[in-house]
């Protein structure tokens, strides 16, 4: 990033204005932003690969998030806790997201040029299937081992599951304090390790092929790249990364909102990466990491700023949903020339 992208600059400016208006303590904001960085960082990184493969924003990362949640619910059902539990969740989640990622990839190969709208619909569809399984399937077809997590009527899982067994088993590792700022070094490193993984994937043979397919699919096919296979691999990688990201997210929160935790993770992640200066054709690690910081800074300060200025916190809420959706709409509107070239 040689220059600050105009979109990022606007976010920076809005966050600073918001910070002033909200009257929040900067240290508090820094702490909050760091937490969000850990929670959402990997999810945003998951978007980089499909963008570079020319498939645009992958809104189907919610599917990866759901895979993580399935793993979690099963772990709670089997009453696994601690690191064993975490391992179990990862295995189930990643295995499931490999499978679903491949399915989504195959589906997207049939809707070339309309990948983004398709991933949104896939996300919606997956959500309803997921809800069907846990709200109706549990207690009727699937028999739970852990009755505590069931609704009183005996069908369906409770909205909230407490994850006592997992809460903060990672966050407290290598926790530093710098004045009032808490730095969970291990978690930050973990996010950076994922960033490193994504970066090195872009520097492998597969990464190069991804970029070639993204830039010019026809020519890529002519030099012997299996374009459809590459696209499927891109989506699989993205789904798996999203799954890992969501495991970190839930583990950090310590509670699982079974039916809603994954919702909006796609919109917020997409908005974040665009805030970091990515376009729907090109994105790098820097865009993702910078974007998370900027986007969440604005997110944290805006309700309080709305309260202070208009006496109504709801206005700040509206503002931030507008920012999330509006950033994506804006990015879609702006990239016309790049689209013509392809």
């Amino acid at each position: 990033m040689r220059h600050l992208n105009p979109v990022s600059a606007v976010f920076l400016l809005l966050s600073l204005v918001g910070l002033l208006l909200s009257g929040m303590r900067p240290t508090f904001v820094v702490n909050e932003v760091l937490i969000r960085f850990i929670r959402d960082g990997v999810m945003v990184l998951a978007l980089i690969i499909p963008i570079n493969a020319g498939m645009g924003l992958n809104f189907a990362i919610v599917v990866g998030a759901m895979c993580a949640q399935v793993g979690l619910v099963l772990a709670v059902d089997l009453q696994l806790t601690g690191f064993t539990g975490l391992l179990f969740i990862s295995v189930i989640g990643i295995g499931l997201s490999l499978l679903l990622g491949a399915l989504i990839g195959l589906c997207l190969n049939r809707v070339k040029g309309k990948e983004m709208i398709s991933t949104i619909i896939i996300g919606f569809l997956a959500t309803s299937i997921y809800q069907l399984i846990f709200m109706v399937g549990y207690g009727t077809i699937i028999h739970p081992h852990n009755p505590e997590m069931m609704l009183s009527r005996g069908i369906g899982i409770r909205n909230m599951i407490d994850l006592q067994g997992f809460r903060n088993i990672l966050d407290k590792l290598w926790l530093f304090r710098l004045g009032e700022i808490e730095i969970p070094l291990f978690m930050i490193l973990l996010v950076l390790i994922f960033a490193g993984i994504v970066h090195s994937i872009m520097n492998t043979r597969l990464g190069r092929q991804l970029v070639a397919v993204g830039l010019d699919g026809r020519k890529a096919a002519m030099v012997g790249i299996d374009t459809e296979g590459v696209r499927v691999k891109a989506i699989i990688l993205s789904t798996v990364l999203a799954c890992c990201g969501h495991i970190i997210y839930i583990e950090n929160i310590g509670m699982l909102n079974v039916y809603t935790a994954h919702l909006n993770s796609d919109i917020f992640s997409c908005a974040a990466i665009l805030a970091g200066g990515a376009t729907i054709f090109r994105a790098g690690i820097a865009n993702a990491l910078l974007g998370v910081l900027l986007f969440h800074s604005l997110f944290i300060v805006s309700p309080q700023a709305g309260q202070n200025v208009f006496g109504n916190p709801a206005l700040g809420e509206y503002f931030r949903s507008f920012v999330a959706y509006g950033t994506i709409a804006f990015a879609l509107m702006m990239q016309r020339q790049a689209a013509d070239r392809n």
Binding site: R208, A212, L215, D216, K219, V223, I225
Partner: peptide, 16 residues
Amino acid sequence: PAVVHEMTVAENITIT
């Protein structure tokens, strides 16, 4: 030529 414009000379020659 099936050469991807936005990639470098080396990337194009060694691709795959």
